[in-house]
Amino acid sequence: MLKTERHARILEHVSARGGINVNELSRLLNVSGATVRRDLQQLSRLNLLRRTHGGAVVGSLGPELPVQHRTDRCRPEKQAIAKAAVALVPEGAVVGMTGGTTVTEIARLLAARGPVTIVTNAVNIAAEMVLHKDVTLVVVGGYARTASYELVGPIAEKTLADHHTDMTFLGVDGISAAHGCTTHDQLEAATDRAFADSSSRTVVVADHSKIGKVTFAKICPLADIDHLVTDGAAPADQLERIADAGVPVTAVRPD
C-alpha cells in the first residue's frame, strides 16, 4: 500500500470514528505499529489529526479529507466514471468543472480527446490543462481553499454569472434524494451552485462513497441536476430514490 493511500485510510478511519489507537490501525492497515506512529506524526504535523497517547483523534479540519489524500481512493471507479462522463460531452462544448478528483480525471480525458473549452475554479486542474494546446482554458478567480484546491467566493460567483457553459461537471461530497447535493464548505457550496446556474446542463460525478451521504452545506436540490454518473458499487436503493426523483443515473464498473 502506498504511503499516500495509507494516510488517506488513516484519515478516513479517524474521521469516521472520532479517534483510533495505534494497535487498531496496525491491524486494519496490516503494517507495523512503528509505521503507524510515523504516519500519525506526519499527519499531525500537517494538522490533519491530533495525536493522543497511543493513537489519534480528529484534527481541526474535521471530516473533510484534503484532495491530495483522496487522489488514490477509488481510482479505478473514478476513471470509469470519467470515461462515461466524457461520452456525454458534445464536440466543441464549453465545459465547466468544479474541483474534485473525479472531475480531474474527466479533464484529462477531455484534453486528450481534442479541442475543448474548460472553465474551472480548481487550480490543480488549471495547472494541468494550461499545458494542453487543444484546451482553451478559463480560470475562475476567488478565495483559495487549501483542502480542495478550489477558488471560491463572491469573485468566482460573479465571474460565473457573467459566462455560460454548455455543460458542467459537478463534484460533490454527498448526494441523496432527500437532501440533494452537498459539500463540506459553505463558500464552496455557493460557488458550485453558481456553476450549475450558469450551465445548460449539470452532471454530477460521484463515486459510490458519496451516494446517500449528506454533508454540511447544500449546493442544490436534485431538481437542478440533469444526470448522475457513479459506479456500480453505489447502494442500489439510494440510486433508485435518486432516479425516482427525476435524475437519470448511469452506474458504471471499472474495466
Rank of each mutant, 00 (worst) to 15 (best):
T165E: 10
R145M: 14
N124L: 14
L151R: 01
K133T: 14
A161M: 05
H163T: 14
N124I: 07
T159H: 05
D166T: 01
E128S: 12
A161V: 03
A156E: 04
R145E: 13
R113Q: 14
V172I: 12
P115T: 09
A111I: 08
V119Y: 02
E128C: 04
A111E: 07
K133R: 15
A144W: 10
V135Y: 00
S148Q: 08
H164V: 12
L151M: 13
V130P: 00
H163K: 06
A127R: 10
A156T: 06
V130C: 12
A161W: 00
A127C: 12
E150N: 09
E157L: 05
L137V: 07
R113K: 14
G142M: 03
V172E: 00
G141N: 08
T136Q: 13
I118E: 06
L109T: 05
A111H: 06
D173H: 10
D134Q: 11
A126K: 01
A127Y: 10
L131E: 15
T165Q: 10
T168R: 00
T120K: 02
A127P: 04
G142Q: 05
L109N: 07
T120Q: 06
V130W: 04
D173S: 15
K158F: 05
G171H: 03
G114N: 11
V152N: 02
H163C: 09
L110F: 10
V123Y: 06
D162Y: 06
V172T: 09
